[in-house]
Design a protein around this nucleic acid. Structure first.
Lengths: 287, 287
DNA sequence: CCCCGGGCTTCCACCCGGGGGAAGAGCCGT
DNA sequence: ACGGCTCTTCCCCCGGGTGGAAGCCCGGGG
């Protein structure tokens, strides 16, 4: 409604160059930037912290947080700090490759957990990361790096190596271009070596990762297949290195993965297909 | 392309008329309306379905869905349908009363599950609903109504009755004002009766719900306490009615709840407090 | 005491990004 | 071929969002 506007501000004027983190030029992006301020390292934040981490003005943050809170996406602790609300948990549970998959797989994972007494993971791929859709921790050996919803680069975990090995070529190339982050002295950061490992995983159908993400850890993982025999997830166990031979874990792991794959409708895991492959021990049938 | 259509569709036609569902006057609200279009009954939606369910224009929906997808909050299946993405699972896992609590409680729940072979639930209160933070399903008796992230009115579940019984007065009053939804012929819908039940739950520390949410189901639940002995969650098991005496489940349930409470730092669950358990504690386990 | 520096909340005028109409591209079944 | 459906793109106008500023409440310190 303002009369004539002579000149739009020229580009020479530089904006304060906000948003180092959020990159939220759009309104929807600002909402997401608020949510993205939260993470495993920052599960609860004050208003100003959200503002700083999201790169938004305090005012804007205040309003957005208010709306999110009213909606149930955020909740406010008595001390005034904000945290993720149950509404988002509820939403997240609807992820088809997430908790829906988990729902189906849990009984199998439970059996595997009971049988091996190891940390059990079910992971799916999201971009260049693996996300834990379920993580059953061993009672004694606490390994804090395995949380449901946890996210790690594919090259640094057993399940991730499986997911990467069976991913599309594009996905692999993209990940192999960027530098591979190192977590331990033994983390594979050499592209050529990683390619070799992936080929081996494809050949054997098993990934064996030692000390990749955490020292003194041994991870063994196998693929889980879906309706079209595509790899939809990876099943893995992690134990303290030296306590178990990696080979000893493979049969139970393979059997469990097969059970889940069958439940998912994978052709290669159908009962009649079991003859073609070598006799594999079936998981404990329902009793 | 018939030029311009001079007449807009007449209002007499039954037009969905901007669903109040979303109630999105604000930009942030529109983003949330898109997310809210998803639910247990609608885990995957087409673009137009999202548009209709959220009450947003197709154009707006299109853009918002695009942004959400780019961010990772939504993902698109090969058939073009949209579903919740892993980013939201990741976020939801950060809910302090949600999966953080779950993380700590899972080993205990697992033991209880193994011991009782029943459906095991850990629930927290969100408004007038209980939300399942964990749900371990019994192998045989599939009870589909217990999913992680599931949300049910407090009056209709065992865990809900516990949460309601120990909730603030305001919360109780608010819930007791609205009509109580009926799920089965036995669901408590009478306010006076519910009050009586709640008083009993407070007295005994145990809720016993029969056929409240699903027919032929028996649910037994007890409170889980936090740092200041406040009730932070409810632990419950559900079995087929007639298979087990409700009393038989109480000891294991109470022991498990105590373990979780202790892990949470509840004073009343500290080792030295074990002798001085307060008043009536439902000691009778023999029947 | 007042001042100060945090965090949080509210208010308001400007203005830029978002909204949605409309048109077009696919893609069915008929 | 048609009509009906969904999805995608384009673009102008306007209304809601943005952020500056001021007010509020705390706790600490001079």
């Amino acid at each position: 409604m303002g009369a004539t506007r002579p000149l739009p501000a020229t580009a020479t004027e530089s904006r304060p160059a906000r948003l180092p983190t959020g990159g939220a030029a759009t309104a929807a992006g600002r909402v997401l930037a608020v949510l993205a301020a939260f993470g495993p390292a920052h599960p609860s934040l004050t208003l100003s912290e959200i503002s700083r981490r999201s790169g938004l003005t305090l005012t804007t943050t205040h309003r957005l947080v208010g709306e999110l809170r009213q909606w149930g996406g955020l909740e406010r602790a008595p001390d005034g700090r904000y945290a993720i609300g149950l509404r988002l948990l509820e939403l997240g549970a609807l992820a088809p490759h997430g908790l829906q998959l988990r729902e189906l797989a849990l009984p199998y994972l439970d059996d595997l957990h009971q049988a091996t007494r190891a940390n059990v993971h079910l992971a799916v791929r999201d971009g260049s990361d693996g996300v834990y859709v379920e993580a059953l921790r061993a009672r004694g050996a606490v390994q804090v790096l395995s949380r449901l919803g946890g996210r790690w680069p594919l090259h640094a975990t057993g399940t991730g190596q499986v997911l990467l090995a069976f991913a599309d070529r594009e996905v692999q190339d993209e990940l192999l271009q960027a530098p591979l982050k190192r977590f331990t002295p033994d983390t594979i950061t050499n592209v050529a070596e990683l390619r070799r490992v992936l080929a081996e995983v494809r050949r054997t159908g098993v990934a064996i990762a030692e000390n990749q993400l955490t020292p003194d850890a041994l991870a063994v993982a196998v693929p889980v297949r879906g309706e079209r025999d595509e790899v939809v997830a990876a099943l893995g166990v992690t134990v303290q290195r030296g306590t178990v031979q990696s080979h000893a874990l493979v049969p139970a792991l393979a059997a469990t993965a097969r059970g889940i794959s069958r439940a998912l409708g994978a052709p290669s895991a159908k009962p009649e297909a079991s003859n073609a492959i070598r006799a594999s021990r079936t998981p404990r049938s329902s009793g």
